[in-house]
């Protein structure tokens, strides 16, 4: 096959509306920040560069190497993009790749794209760039080791978040999905880590200037170290807990009010998708849906306006 999809893409409508809306909000907020940062630091020259880099990540995902018994190792590319292009540009590039996969190939759904971008583009960039930045003054070997670990962990993190989102939507059993997903992706992650390390090492040898102190890659602030380490710790601590003690996690989620008793779609902004004073009628549910859509749309619009105003202000300076 021409193109082998990474197995992390959540299919269309596999998340409840509430969970996918929550993921959209996080994704839109982070991407707005990424856009305003990128607009500030990049000239018009970088836009074609980022477009080609997105095509590069997409094409590089087709490079594989045989492992054993007909299986092969693949590149997923999230950490590679963040390290070469810097975190913000890396996020935008991965977003474009995931959007194209969803739009053109139905690989990952449109309604759940917020979650897919979060799991495969934003979390990976945070872990990858954060850990890389943590060791930015160390030797090449330490850097490569950090990048390799980050690449492996980012795949695991994507699997963990994907499982948790599907479970919170009531569409999978926590006891089954978390161990299975983590096990499969612990193996897939090794392939991604090996290729990422070899690729970065190749670039360090042939074009050290692209990763040097003057490059885009070195411009991410120290804050990334904190974000990266925080996300890393979260994944490292949550993964064993979720796979060894799913009942415990379920209990925590219930205590925190994420899971309702009879309801299978937890974390609701509007309870039962009904408007209280209209009662349990079809009309009430429809209106609740419309209100939810308007609220989400309004949030997105306001963010969009904020970003536009900011970037115009930055442009006029």
């Amino acid at each position: 096959m021409l193109y082998s999809p990474a197995p992390l893409h959540i299919p269309e409508n596999f998340l409840s509306l509430a969970v996918s809306a929550a993921c959209w909000v996080v994704t839109i907020l982070t991407l707005s920040l990424a856009i305003s940062k990128t607009n500030k630091s990049l000239g018009e020259r970088q836009i074609p560069l980022m477009g080609i880099m997105a095509a590069f990540i997409f094409a590089a995902q087709m490079i594989n190497f045989p492992v054993a018994g007909g299986t092969s190792g693949h590149l997923l590319g999230g950490v590679l993009a963040a390290v070469i292009l810097g975190p913000w540009a890396g996020m935008l590039v991965m977003t474009a790749v995931i959007a194209l996969q969803a739009l053109l190939f139905q690989d990952g759904g449109l309604s759940v794209m917020g979650a897919n971008i979060l799991n495969m583009g934003l979390v990976t960039a945070a872990i990858g760039y954060g850990l890389y930045r943590l060791v930015s003054n160390r030797s090449r070997k330490v850097k490569l080791a950090a990048i390799g670990f980050a690449a492996w962990l980012s795949v695991l993190a994507g699997a963990l978040f994907t499982s948790l989102q599907i479970w919170l939507s009531g569409n999978a059993d926590l006891k089954i999905i978390v161990p299975v997903m983590l096990f499969i992706h612990a193996l897939i992650g090794v392939g991604d880590a090996l290729i990422t390390v070899a690729a970065i090492s190749f670039i360090m040898r042939t074009r050290p200037d692209l990763l040097g102190e003057e490059s885009e890659s070195a411009k991410g602030g120290q804050g990334w170290v904190w974000v990266g380490v925080a996300v890393t710790l979260l994944v490292v601590l949550l993964s064993p807990f979720a796979s060894a003690d799913p009942d415990g996690l379920e209990r925590v989620a219930t205590d925190l009010g994420f899971i309702g008793q009879a309801q299978l779609s937890p974390f609701q902004i509007i309870p039962d998708y009904t408007v209280p004073f209209l009662g349990q009628t079809a009309l009430s549910t429809v209106i609740a849906g419309v209100i939810g859509a308007i609220v989400v749309g309004l949030v997105a619009y306001l963010i969009g306006r904020g970003v536009k105003a900011k970037s115009q202000a930055a442009g006029s300076k």
């Binding site: 590089a60 594989n64 190792g73 590149l75 070469i84 290729i195 690729a199 090492s201 190749f202 670039i203």
Partner: peptide, 16 residues
């Protein structure tokens, strides 16, 4: 894996 990684690096340089 190293060969595959070199190919990815090569692809990056050509794209760049």
């Amino acid at each position: 894996a190293k060969v595959a990684g070199d190919m990815a690096g090569q692809l990056f340089l050509r794209s760049y």
